[in-house]
Amino acid sequence: MTDRPIRVLVCEDQELIRAGYVTVLGAQPDLEVVGEAANGHEALAQAERLNPDVVVMDIEMPLLNGIEATRRIAGPEAANPAKVLVVTTFNVDQYVYDALRAGASGFLLKDAPLSELIDGVRTIARGDSLLPPAVTRTLIGRYADRIRPAGTPAPLDGLARRELEVLRLIAGGLSNAEIATELVLSVETVKTYVSRILTKLNLRDRVQAVVLAYRTGLVSAE
């Protein structure tokens, strides 16, 4: 475990908002703002050059929108994928869905308190997702028919019975504490199971785990 600060790249086309993010995030002892970008092309160039841990990404940006920039920075084709926190004024299911499909690890509205932005960066840096459980459940469930193929692919074959139970509950939108209560386990034990699941399935975070659970048919939208 390293004690170095979390390296953050801020991508936002509105200068005042970008400056505010940079100031607030840079004031945290465990965060370091290593770069800024005012459009999607700059975001790609800076991400490649700086290799940040977390990218704070606006959706509506000139030249290249935040969804496509996220896909190139955090998607499966990215050479050195970063974790992306999408921050936008648009509280629209389709935006959230597209951002998650592109590889984002979390979603936050611009009118959220700045403390939530700070906590959000820390949350996705440690491998957790930033979506309220209810949003995870309804959003992924609503679009499950678009992302779940027929049959159950092989990846889940490597999971033990208890790990499958935990994955089902993650996909149901339960937090670690709620999973612990449901399965009568300690929160630390649940964290261990979640970490093991992500490692076995080669997943970046809980968001990817939720999507995979629907894709494989482990859970359904019904």
Rank of each mutant, 00 (worst) to 15 (best):
R142A: 11
S175Y: 01
T152C: 05
S186F: 00
G103H: 14
K110H: 02
A125C: 04
S105D: 05
R146Y: 08
G173Y: 12
V121A: 10
V184D: 14
R162G: 04
I118E: 15
L167C: 02
I118W: 12
A104C: 12
E163W: 00
L131A: 03
I140Y: 00
L183Y: 11
D128G: 09
G103M: 15
A134V: 13
G120W: 13
A150H: 04
D119N: 15
E178Y: 00
L164F: 03
L159D: 10
G173L: 05
E165L: 03
L185C: 07
I179K: 00
R168P: 01
R122D: 10
A144R: 03
T123I: 10
L130D: 07
E165N: 07
L185P: 02
T123V: 06
D145H: 13
E178Q: 15
T152P: 01
L130V: 02
P153V: 12
L183T: 11
G120P: 12
Y143F: 15
I170G: 04
A144K: 05
A102N: 07
D111G: 01
A144E: 03
S115F: 00
F107V: 05
E163A: 03
D119M: 12
P149M: 08
E165V: 02
N176E: 10
T123F: 03
T152R: 14
V121P: 08
A177L: 03
L156C: 00
A177E: 15
A104Q: 12
L109Y: 04
S129M: 13
I118A: 11
L159E: 08
D111H: 13
S186C: 09
G172S: 09
Y143M: 04
L156Q: 08
D111A: 09
I124C: 02
I179M: 04
S105M: 06
V121D: 11
T123W: 05
G172R: 09
R168A: 06
L185N: 04
G173W: 02
D128A: 14
L185W: 05
T136G: 11
I118N: 13
A150P: 11
L183F: 06
L167R: 10
R161Q: 13
L117K: 05
I147W: 07
L167S: 03
D128T: 06
G103P: 12
S115A: 15
R148A: 15
S175C: 03
S129A: 14
R122Q: 13
I170E: 09
D128W: 14
L159Y: 06
L117P: 14
G173P: 11
R161E: 15
N176L: 05
P153I: 12
I118S: 13
P133D: 08
T152W: 00
G172W: 03
L131F: 07
S186A: 10
T123N: 06
A160K: 11
